[in-house]
């Protein structure tokens, strides 16, 4: 059987809210090392990779590897019934056709159980090469969210250019153009506001803002978003979930003909 208890149930709520508009349904894979998901959006332009480590759960048991297909909209409906401070336990019998979500309030005066029907989903598992990236930018998650939101009011795509000291986000649209530059800033007294750039080679790539805006829904999960870029490769946008795991998004670039 599979059973996992997350004391901070809100994390699971935030993860599902972050991905439910990007992917319709997905297989959640559970094994002894943790709970994970890999899924592409319906246009096969982006890929979501979630991994929650077994040791990030208060209690974790997985007797055999299981893959549980769920419709994200249904999962979201159920998790919306959990309070933000509830602990969430997921349970499923081997070969079961449902997964049970149990919500416990902090004083345990309220216990609720919701069963979600599992689905058979044919999904393609992609091999993600373990690249060394040309540039890594770690910036406050809220700042990244604001940049992609603001630029979306002007254009559809963003050119992200990283140099040694700064990262520049630029867009062009019918009404004009916009550029936002963030300089490296390792403020030791305000670590949550730091912007750090680690670069092997200057890089500049263009991406669809619509997807980056969707990825930014993961902002509540982490203080920082980490962007990893290499020439002519998908961008990796990572949100580290402290002590539990990470939610990562890959987006294929726009390429000149």
């Amino acid at each position: 059987m599979f059973e996992a208890r997350l004391a901070q149930g809100a994390l699971l709520k935030k993860v599902v809210e972050a991905i439910k508009d990007l992917i319709e349904d997905a297989n959640f894979d559970c094994n002894s090392s943790g709970f994970s998901l890999q899924a592409m959006d319906s246009s096969h332009v982006s890929l979501v990779a979630l991994s929650l480590r077994a040791d990030g759960f208060e209690h974790y048991r997985c007797d055999r590897n299981v893959s549980m297909g769920m419709k994200l909209a249904s999962l979201s409906k159920i998790l919306k019934c959990a309070n933000g401070d509830d602990a969430i336990t997921m349970k499923s019998e081997d070969n079961g056709d449902t997964i049970t979500f149990m919500f416990e309030s902090p004083e345990q005066e309220r216990l609720s159980e919701f069963d979600l029907k599992l689905m058979d989903i044919d999904s393609e598992h992609l091999g993600i090469p373990d690249n060394e990236y040309d540039a890594t930018v770690k910036l406050p998650a809220a700042e990244f969210q604001r940049i992609v939101k603001d630029l979306s009011t002007i254009g559809d795509t963003v050119e992200i250019s990283v140099t040694k000291d700064a990262v520049k986000f630029g867009t062009t649209g019918d009404i004009g153009n916009a550029n936002i530059m963030c300089r490296q800033n390792k403020a030791a007294d305000k670590p949550d506001e730091s912007t750090e750039i680690d670069i092997n080679e200057a890089v500049s790539l263009t991406f669809a803002l619509r997807y980056l805006n969707s990825f930014a829904k993961a902002t509540p999960l982490s203080t920082h978003a980490v962007l990893k870029l290499s020439k002519e490769l998908p961008i990796l946008v990572e949100y580290h979930i402290p002590e539990v795991g990470r939610l990562a998004f890959y987006l294929a670039p726009k390429i000149e003909d």
Partner: peptide, 14 residues
């Protein structure tokens, strides 16, 4: 204009 690449062009089936 720039064309949107597919993610499967970069990451093969495993």
């Amino acid at each position: 204009a720039a064309q949107q690449a597919s993610i499967t062009a970069f990451f093969g089936a495993s």
